[in-house]
Amino acid sequence: MALAVIQAMMSLGLLYYVMGLVGHVYVVGIANGFGYGAHWSIALAAASELFGVKNFGTLYNFLTMASPAGSLFLSGFVASTIYDYYAEQQAKHRMVQSLNNNELLLCEGNVCFSLTCGILALVCLFAASLSLVIVHRTRRFYAQLYVESRR
């Protein structure tokens, strides 16, 4: 059930991503930072409850690997490709006939990251559904756990 909180956090973040398409960078920053931070405390606590504390060190570090792995794909592949695409489009649009081809490709405007934000929102939605799956699977265990601790 702790994982339901992750889900809530992520759908919150997701909602604001979509709002972020309009360009509220502050909102995106706050919501995203909050969601990202909440992942760690909740997921690790849940992992320690599900898988025991004896070998928690290895499990913890394996789960920590998850975030760079996700970022490697999303940031290194998805975001950069979309950014470059729009930057090239804009460069063509500006009709840069000026001499240097080595000019830095810069993207301006809301359009650069809106598609990325949309993709990220979808990915978050999927992650939220996955965590709901965990919630469903571990519900009985958690009920048992907290009943026992209350006795």
Binding site: L50, A66, S75, V78, V123, C124, A127, R137
Partner: peptide
């Protein structure tokens, strides 16, 4: 399931921060 949920959720968070 937990791992992939983390990959997606935290990965997208990290992407935005980066």
């Amino acid at each position: 399931v937990m791992f992939f949920s983390l990959v997606m959720g935290a990965g997208s968070g990290l992407t935005i921060i980066n």
